[in-house]
């Protein structure tokens, strides 16, 4: 029996095995390594963010890719946001109607729709679609460019890769997520309204009375501000993961899947 196998059996016998046993055996070393890793990534992210800010005046380099990226983000997300927003609007409407049935007047449906969709669902849905479809694509795209030396080739052609690759994606995200949020808001509210008048006794007039009675410009603008930060975080984290991808296809795969928590971090 080999030494490693014997250790594994010993670990199992003690109720600890695999990576957990390593943590249990050396908790300080584990925490130390994690802190170093976290600091390293944080430092590199701050550096990349600073480079992005420095690249802002270089409009000539990123103007064309920016237009392309805005189109890509919009095109890739529009259909799915449309369907998900319909489902969200219908679900909120049906569930609210069910819960309000004997406790509050039905025009509250409009009020609930306004608050739920504008403040939360609109930006969050747009962000999750973006992270799932666009974020993964950005990370995989940049990761592939890194491991196939395309980023090096770009630098050899006297381009700043941050201006040409990262900045347009981040700015496109910051512009397009709010646009997609407005679209998600409009589709969600419409779906909620149509479901309400089809499935409950509420009329269009009552629904919009409830909607208007609680409407504040702040609701819409707050949702849009959130959307801007979602756009920034998702695209930035995706770009970061892709830009620093290593170790061939495995690194690209890791980059494409490790950016999914970004909307939660910005939330």
């Amino acid at each position: 029996m080999g030494g490693a196998e014997a250790n594994q059996l010993k670990g199992k016998a003690q109720g600890t095995s695999g990576p957990l046993s390593h943590i249990a055996m050396n908790p300080i070393s584990f925490i130390g390594k994690e802190v170093i890793k976290f600091s390293f990534h944080l430092g590199r992210m701050v550096k990349l963010l600073w480079e992005i800010l420095k690249a802002v005046p270089d409009f000539r380099t990123y103007s064309k890719p920016l237009a392309k990226q805005m189109l890509v983000i919009g095109n890739r997300s529009l259909t799915i946001i449309f369907f998900i927003s319909i489902l969200a609007g219908m679900t909120v409407s049906v569930q609210t109607a069910y819960n309000l049935k004997s406790y509050a007047p039905l025009y509250f449906l409009g009020s609930t729709m306004e608050k739920t969709i504008f403040l939360e669902f609109g930006p969050l849905l747009a962000a999750f679609i973006l992270v799932g479809k666009v974020g993964a694509t950005i990370a995989a795209e940049l990761g592939t460019m890194r491991v196939t030396e395309q980023i090096d080739a770009l630098e050899s052609l006297a381009f700043n890769p941050v201006s040409y690759l990262i900045l347009p994606r981040v700015v496109a995200g910051m512009i397009m997520v709010p646009v997609l949020t407005i679209f998600a808001d409009a589709v969600g509210i419409t779906a909620g309204w149509l479901t309400s008048i089809a499935k409950t006794n509420v009329t269009t007039r009552q629904f919009f009375y409830g909607f208007k009675s609680v409407y504040q410009t702040f609701d819409l603008s707050f949702g849009l501000i959130k959307a801007v930060f979602f756009g920034l975080t998702i695209t930035f984290v995706s770009c970061y993961e892709g830009y620093y991808a290593r170790q061939g296809a495995e690194g690209v795969g890791r980059a494409a899947t490790s950016q999914w928590l970004s909307p939660l971090s910005s939330y």
């Binding site: 592939t144 196939t148 030396e149 090096d152 080739a153 050899s156």
Partner: peptide, 10 residues
């Protein structure tokens, strides 16, 4: 510079 794997922008 010509890279080993061509490194064309795909």
């Amino acid at each position: 510079m010509v890279f080993q794997g061509s490194a064309l922008f795909d």
